[in-house]
Design a protein around this nucleic acid. Structure first.
Length: 327
DNA sequence: TATCCGTGGCT
DNA sequence: TAGCCAAGGAT
């Protein structure tokens, strides 16, 4: 993501490709640059422009996104690519208002695309900017309630001149020097204007409302392996947790689930794992059986990397159990 | 306005 | 190593 490495990439006057800006900003929602980098490279290599992505099969995009999380982003990414490709002649809108109408583009992403790709005077407020602004103005009220105030203050700082450069600089400052813990105030170019630093509050801003604790749910997953090494997979419903991703059949996830084998077989317990989602912990018991079933994915076409992380963990446990059974 | 969405890195 | 933490959009 060249335009995220610093202002050098577009100081010469060239603008980054809106398709790449959009793709990277969607990937960067709730996700670090380090986690995104390889995914971005693979997506742009495989689908170099919005028309190519719009023409991709849903399953291919979901497989390429596997492991990155928040799978609604991948579904909305495809919807958005198809609108831009088919209805907008492959051109992304240049205003925040029009960008906001596209699937998966909210206030932050619309502002980021407008500012970075089109150098529009958009107000771009992500978590980094919220932190920088809270510190500069020593805002002590907690998020998320104080977010509108932080947005207003960020707006005051946005210049008419080179707004894209400013947006980029604010996010870079937050991502590097003005970090969540142990901010490097000694290196900070705006320390002399920072009320948070003056008050000695920089490390504890922005304040956040306490989060509710996560309940523990339990569940069973069933990994059936055929004589030739095929596995039984199913695609999850479009909506809800891990929506649209591939996985193993299983039980409900709740406080006390009933076992729910997809068919009768000699199911053996292979092990269990804990996986933490946004709002609960899941203790998953992995069951395995040797069995031939119609509709199995052949061994040669099964790539664990195409699964979301939870199911990849389940596969690792199942595979270890099966290979030790074989001796 | 509140709740639902994953993951990986850090401590 | 287990828990904590960071961080946008949709509904």
């Amino acid at each position: 993501m060249p335009w995220r490495t610093g202002p050098e990439a577009w100081r010469a006057g060239e603008r980054p490709d809106p398709y790449r800006v959009w793709l990277s900003e969607v990937m960067l929602q709730q996700t670090t640059v380090a986690a995104v980098r390889d995914y971005f490279r693979r997506f742009t290599a495989r689908w170099p422009d919005v028309h190519a992505l719009a023409a991709a099969a849903d399953a291919d995009v979901m497989a390429e996104w596997a492991g990155l999380g928040y799978y609604a982003r991948a579904r909305n990414l495809l919807k958005c690519a198809r609108v831009v490709s088919h209805d907008l002649d492959g051109r992304f809108p240049e205003t925040v208002e029009e960008l906001r109408k596209l699937p998966g583009i909210g206030p932050y992403t619309a502002g980021a695309i407008a500012a970075i790709a089109f150098d529009a005077p958009a107000v771009v407020v992500d978590g980094n900017v919220e932190r920088v602004v809270a510190r500069i103005f020593a805002v002590t009220d907690p998020l998320p309630g104080v977010k509108p105030e932080l947005t207003r203050l960020a707006e005051c700082l946005t210049p008419q001149e080179r707004p894209g450069c400013h947006a980029q600089a604010m996010m870079d400052l937050g991502a590097t020097i003005c970090s969540p813990r142990n901010p490097a105030c000694g290196l900070c170019p705006v320390r002399v204007d920072c009320a948070g630093y003056d008050a000695g509050l920089q490390a504890e801003l922005p304040r956040k409302a306490p989060k509710p604790e996560k309940p523990v749910r339990r569940g069973f997953a069933y990994v059936a392996v055929g004589p030739a090494g095929g596995v039984l997979l199913e695609r999850r419903p479009e909506k809800g947790l891990l929506g649209g991703t591939l996985g193993f059949p299983g039980s409900d996830w709740c406080e006390a689930p009933d076992p729910a084998p997809p068919f009768a077989a000699d199911w053996q317990e292979a092990g269990s794992l804990r996986h933490t989602f946004t709002h609960f912990h899941l203790d998953l018991t992995v069951m395995v059986a040797r069995a031939a079933r119609p509709g199995m994915t052949p061994k040669a076409q099964f790539r664990p990397a195409d699964l979301p992380t939870l199911m990849r963990k389940a596969w690792n446990i199942a595979e270890a159990a099966i290979s030790s059974q074989q001796g």
